[in-house]
Structure formats: C-alpha cells, structure tokens
Design a protein around this nucleic acid. Structure first.
Lengths: 357, 357
DNA sequence: CGGAAATGGTGAAACGATTAACTTATGGTG
DNA sequence: CACCATAAGTTAATCGTTTCACCATTTCCG
C-alpha cells in the first residue's frame, strides 16, 4: 500500500480510504488510485494487516460436529453450507469450515482457529449442548448463530420444530396401520456407538435433536394408543451410510418391524439398501420413512419429512451478518411438512415378515 | 499475549516461543505458560497478528467455478472438499471456500480475498483455462494445486485420464450395440447456455475436461466405426439437476437415441428422472451412463465411470501442504474404471423409442 | 464580505505477534 | 581452571492497515 501511495503521489491513508470506499477521497482520485494499484499488481489491502487493525477479517465459519470429513458426506450439512454461502457470497464474505472436536491434545485448546480469530463469526451446526468449543465461543462473545442445537445457550438460532416434524412422521406410519415399528435415531450423545436402546435410555440424551424427535415419536405413539415400550429403537451413532447399515442390521436382528422410521434420510436410505440385500421389498414388506428431504429422497421415492435446509442456511447467515453489523436479530423458525412418496404403505395382511434371503 | 507474559512473569517473546513449541523454552515453562493462558482465557496467538508477522495464516482455500452456491450441490465438489479436509484437519489447517467468478464489479478485483491473503494456498477445482483469478494466482506465486483443469498452467495438479475414462464409458455403450447415442456434456466454456452442439463446435471448448472427454467419446466412436457426426451432443451449461433436466429435454426433442452418455452423474440422474416422467424405462427403453460414481449412482444403480474423488482431494491437499512447507511435489494421476450397474443394457430389438407419455 | 460548514487530504499511533541478534547461566572438557 | 558450547530467555524491529485528530481549501449563506 505504501508503494501504491508513493506511485499515486498520495499518503497511505488516502489509499486506505480509497479502498474502503470512504467519502474522504474523491471519486476521480479513487479511480486513479485503483488504476495505479492494478498496474503495480496490488490486489487490495492485505487481510492480515487490515484485520489486525480493524478487527474484521471477512470470513465466517461453520462448525460441524466431529470432523468436516464426515460432515461433508451429509447432504443436510452441504445444503446448509450452500445457504450460508449464498448470503456470504453476496456480502463478499468467505466461508470456512471447522471441526467441532479436536479436543484431543491438551496442548492446543480445542479448535483454536475459531477462537484465535480466523473468522468474524460462526454458524454452529448440530453441536451437542455444553460442547467446550461452544462454551468458549459464548464466553468470548464471538458472534454466533446456532442451527438445530443447542438452543439453550442464549445464542440466536434457527431451527425447525423437531418434535412436530417427528410427530408428523410417526403419525403417518401409525395412520397407515403399522404397530410394529423400528426407529433409527442418529445419535443420543457424544459417543458414536451403534446399539439398541430403550425408551428409558432416551431421557438421558444430550443431543437436543434426538430428544425432541423421540418425544415427537412417543407423543404420536400415545395418541395412537401404542405403548412406547413396543417401539424398537436403535441408535446409529454417526450420520453416514455405514452407521445406517449397521443400525438397520442390529434392528432387524432384534425385532421384526413392519415399518422403519429414521431421523435422517441418510439412515433411511441405508436401511432401504439393507432391506433390498435381505430380499425385502419397500414398501410391500416394510415401509421406510426418513427425515430431511435430502435430494436423494426425491430420486429414490423415499417418504420423508421436508425441512428447508438451504433456507436454514440463508437464515443463519442473515442473522449472523446482521449481528456482525451490530444488529440484534435473534431467531428464525422454519416449518416442516410430510412428503409422502413410494416408500410407505399399509402393512401387509400377513404381518409376519417373510423369511430372510 | 502481553497479559499472559506479564501474568507468567516472562517476556512476550517467551510466550510466543512457548506457543510455537520452540525448543527455546523449557517444557516446564511451557506448561506453566499454557496454564496461565488457560486461566486468562487466552486461546492462542491471534491469527491476524501472527499472520501479519509470519506470513502464514493457517488456512487453505478451494476455488470452485462460479459460486459455492452451485458447487455445493455437486457431490464431486463436496467429496473433493472432504478429501482436502481430511488432510487439512490433521494438519490443523482450516478449509475456506471461494467462488472463482465475482468478475463483476471493476472496483473490486476478482476474488480479492484469495489474493489478499485470506489463505496460504489454494486448490483450484475445475476452473477454465486462462481464468483471470488463476492468472493472478500464478503471477503472485500463491501456492496452488489444480484439480482437473487447467493442466496447462505450470501448476502442480492432480487429475484423472479424462479421455480414457470417457473412452471406457462410450466403449461400454457401443459394445452393447447402441448406435444412436446422445451425449450430455457439462460445459464447454464460460457461458452456461443449454443447447445442442455439433462435433465441430466442440473443438473450441475452453474447458479442458470437456475437450478431453469428448475426444475420448470420439475415439471410441471411431474405433466402433460410428461416424462422430451421428452423435447427438447437448451441452448443459451448469452442473446441477435443473441444467440436466433441460439438456435432456432438448436432446430428446431433437433426437431419438437409445443410449444417453453424460459427463456427470448429476446429469445422468437428471436424465433418468426426465425419462421416467416421459414414461420411458431405463435400461429397457434407453440406457443411461454417468461419470464420477457419486454416492447416488450406487443407490440408483446407475452405470458410471468411477473416479476416486475423495482421494483426489487428499492428493491435492498433500501436494499443497508439501508446497507450503517448501516441497516440490508436482502431480498425481488417478485411475478411472467402468462400473456397470442396472442402467445400461443392449438396445431393444424395435429400436424405435415408444411414443411419449 | 466574514465566518461556518463541507470537502479532500495528511501524520502517526496503534493492532498482536514473530524472530534475528544478543545476553546470561550452566555444565562439560582438555 | 579457563574456555566454550548449550540452554533458556530477553530486546526491539517489523509486518500492513486503519482511523482519530488535524489541517488546508473551497463553497455557501445571510
């Protein structure tokens, strides 16, 4: 910038004002400075210097559970990012991806890059209550918007009514006449074990999502006079195909449901594949319903609960940018709806599932 | 850092050395400093200050064509990011997403954030030859690795043999006996028009990918004694469902192929959907083959060309980090292979397609 | 025409860290 | 014991901007 200033015959202050489009410098002068800069191959104020002085860096982050490695396989994450990127893009703000964990080494505090100011603010997606990183973000007052969870933290949030969505989902299955129902829930807490659980275990879930959705399932069951103890519940542990596969196998080995209800389309799709492998037809032998309405749901004809993921991203980014600008927007609630496709149907007369293979 | 130094009774230099794990400070001292820092809620050196002085910022970027908005819908982009994130994550380096365009306003140079140092280096994905941003990156000597295109720039790259992959794809279709073949190519140049093109138009393509793959198609056609003029070629313009839909419609309205060959699974899937809408069955009425082997291909049973996208990301990140560390690694070539699933079959005897609807 | 307000610009002090060069202790060695 | 390498710190210069406080002009208005 010093060089540009010298070449343009002005002070560095003027160049700085020119690039920040301040009215302190005339339009003609500004143009002149721009062309000098272009000639010298100066691309604009160095981010580090600028950020050091101004405190702004021009990037926002999205924090995803565990590692980006897994998150990028989950369409509900990439679509959320898409929504955030849409808004960020038009505001000339870059999008940076962070893992929530890295709690490993005691040397480096968890996920220091966020705390150390690599971004101006963050969208926190689906991170469990009380996560140390979230606590640290709150403690430092880093602008943040929470998507899905933990709603409790006093941070602005955008969310859906998970309980209601889940209710719709289970209600659909029960209304079709199913009574032997398997539930695949993504994860209850920090651990990523894949195992059967009872309705009682569920109360201890630290994941708000899971708690709410299960509450919705139970409410629907009660309304249809189905004792919640009769629901077979398996927790997958991770939101990916492999976990969905395993959860489905565990569930099918332990029970003989006529319908499968999953808290994620990823798991519903995995379940569908496993059923196919075992020679069971959807929806004739078994109904399957997912949650999210990921693009793949439409392709496969999976019944599911629609939630506007991209819009959630847009809303989160809008709130975040508002906050960065000193605003005080605080929340945004989205609607869910039932989408019935080809994967759900009434149970067959002979309600005993056919032999395997 | 000054406060931490004071509280620990050492100089700021010592604190800095402690955080950079230099041997200039003893292990016990380092531990003491860490605990003082933790007490004071100091999360580590501020990125802006650190970067200003050291020139390193601890983030790498990925540049995607046009806007992240569209890119995040393309699984081959998100899977690439996944691969990059895997490597970056273990090196404690964040991943930032950039659009390649923003060439709009003459005020702000295109995509200044990269040039202005928001990242230490970039992975450039699928950006056309001679793009001004790429030129600027080369001119400034910003460490970069190119994935897929433009291989010409003298930058290190990771790629597949596009021509060979395309050859495999077309050869499969031709070997099944198809002679009336439609091709959906993603994009030839900067514009995102959706239109039919001739084999001659194709020579002018600025997208290396498209050029190479079409060359592969033509080579296979020649080897099977099918004149390239008989291929119906439509360019989609964008890599998303909508563009795939439109391209398919245009193609079907203009020709009556028995097989559809797409340069992307996204388009192949879109085509499949359109065929279904028109009452055509895959592969009975028409064969469809894609490229990439995105996760959805397996789900739907789409025949396709497999390429190791996540590995490409890993390779790109590895090369980039090596470069950032002063290394000189330069390239990595990946293999492709044909994956035959349920969407391709020999053409039917009555090779005239049934009436629409 | 005098003074106030607007316009366009400059000087210089931060911002928070890194690191070369220097200074002390502390042992080890011939 | 004198000498020197090594370990463990410290000092101070520097990275590139932003922005507050000032300073000239020019314009406007009663």
């Amino acid at each position: 910038m010093k060089d540009v200033a010298r070449a343009a015959g002005v002070s560095v202050a003027t160049v700085s004002y020119a690039f920040s489009k301040s009215s302190k410098v005339s339009a003609t002068q500004r143009e002149r400075i721009y062309s000098v800069a272009a000639e010298l191959g100066y691309a604009g104020p160095n981010i580090a210097g600028s950020s050091l002085r101004s405190g702004r860096i021009g990037a926002v982050g999205v924090i995803v559970p565990d590692s980006p490695v897994q998150a990028l396989e989950d369409p509900s994450v990439t679509l959320l990012m898409k929504g955030i990127a849409e808004i960020g893009n038009s505001a000339d703000i870059a999008l940076t991806l962070f893992p929530a964990s890295r709690g490993g080494s005691p040397d480096s505090p968890p996920n220091s890059l966020v705390l150390r100011g690599l971004v101006d603010g963050v969208v926190i997606h689906n991170v469990p209550d009380g996560h140390p990183l979230v606590e640290a973000i709150i403690a430092r007052g880093i602008p943040a918007v929470v998507v899905d969870s933990p709603r409790s933290a006093g941070l602005p949030f955008v969310a859906i009514d998970d309980r209601h969505g889940a209710y719709l989902q289970m209600d659909h299955i029960l209304s079709l006449g199913h009574r032997r129902i398997g539930i695949i829930v993504d994860k209850l807490g920090q651990d990523s074990d894949c195992r059967m659980v009872t309705a009682d275990d569920v109360g201890a879930a630290t994941e708000r999502n899971a708690r709410e959705r299960l509450a919705g399932y139970f409410a629907a069951a009660r309304d249809h006079h189905l004792p919640v103890e009769e629901l077979s519940i398996v927790v997958a542990g991770n939101i990916d195909r492999a976990a969905g596969d395993e959860a489905t196998r565990i569930l099918l080995d332990a029970a003989r449901p006529t319908a499968l209800v999953a808290t994620s389309d990823v798991h519903a799709v995995a379940a569908w594949q496993v059923l196919r492998e075992r020679g069971l037809t959807v929806p004739d032998d078994m109904s399957v319903i997912g949650f999210d309405d990921a693009p793949v749901a439409e392709l496969l004809g999976l019944s599911t609960i629609h939630q506007p993921i991209v819009e959630k991203g847009r809303a989160a980014a809008t709130i975040l940018l508002d906050r960065l600008g000193g605003g005080t927007r605080t929340r945004s609630l989205m609607k869910t709806s039932l989408v019935v496709r080809a994967s759900t149907a009434p149970p067959r007369e002979s309600s005993t599932a056919p032999p395997r293979e």
